[in-house]
Design a protein around this nucleic acid. Structure first.
Lengths: 164, 164
DNA sequence: CGCAATTGTTGTCGAGGTCAACAATAGCTG
DNA sequence: CAGCTATTGTTGACCTCGACAACAATTGCG
């Protein structure tokens, strides 16, 4: 509720000069950050997710939602604990992710007959359809990424990032 | 305020068996996630940040705070806009980061005489001391990371992640 | 002067990570 | 079998962080 913002439509700023102007700073040093893997991993991850979100905006699927749909789709009957462990997220977090996906009619939670505590997760037909479309868009996103990074660096990063 | 949680000190669970037990699932497929750089970048970044936070917990410096202190320390007189652009974060976000660091006595914002809009950022003596200690701990964190990943992969990742 | 841009700032929203606590269920083990 | 313990899903609360919108003060020009 109360979602309507005024949205004044400010005419796109024309960016008159280049940068700040006053500062004659040519290069700003990152100092020891240059040696920290986490810093660059974060930068890359943010950039990639921004592009992912932009590319899948039309079907409104976030990176986290995509990963959940993909893994459920490829492993029918998974329990929430297994799924959370696989994706490296908290069970509590997954509960809320699944809420949304269930609301939207993509996922079903079925009580396991063998173990009354577990939920067997599976996609609905609509979930499968959405996942198929999401995969196409995600592949497009990855292609854009390959184009931006260069195929060699992309392949190298994927190989090095993936745990053997 | 209201920081005291009950923290009941539950005796460390003994972890009797290994895993779930019921599920005979040997390997859970990641399907197309295997080809998505963003997924693995995210996983790595989260792991690395967790270790960073753990290692710097004693001085209570987060990765974001560390990056801010490092760049200010190496580029005295920087403006907030320049700093935000350098680190790839929003100006609005930086404002709140600097609030905390100023409260804690690590950073000073001085009005620029040349340009009344800008703040010239610099570390206080206490900020410099804390940064020095943080760098030592951060280096220790990075060493642990190198040990975990292997020196070759670490070097390869750093090289590939850093934009040339 | 007057208008547009920049800078710092605040508010708000939503996504995510973290931790504590709990009910229901399952599985041992004495 | 009873009783204890672990697991599973769930909720609540808190905090960080990215993204926008809006604004006041200031600067820079045409």
């Amino acid at each position: 509720m109360a979602k309507k913002r005024s949205r004044r439509h400010r005419a796109a700023p024309l960016r008159r000069k280049a940068a700040t102007g006053s500062s004659s700073r040519s290069a700003i040093s990152l100092d020891v950050l240059e040696g920290h893997l986490g810093y660059f991993a974060r930068r890359l991850q943010v950039r990639v997710f921004q592009d992912f979100i932009r590319t899948l905006k039309r079907i409104n699927i976030s990176p986290a939602q995509f990963s959940v749909l993909v893994v459920i789709g490829a492993n029918r009957g998974l329990s929430q604990a297994e799924l959370a462990a696989t994706l490296g997220i908290e069970r509590a977090r997954l509960v809320r992710l699944l809420h949304r996906l269930e609301e939207r009619g993509f996922v079903q939670r079925l009580r396991s007959s063998a173990d009354g505590r577990r939920h067997a997760l599976q996609l609905t037909p609509q979930g499968r359809t959405t996942l198929a479309r999401a995969k196409i868009l995600a592949a497009r996103h990855e292609s854009q990424l390959i184009r931006k990074l260069g195929a060699e660096r992309h392949a190298m990063l994927l190989r090095a990032l993936r745990y053997p």
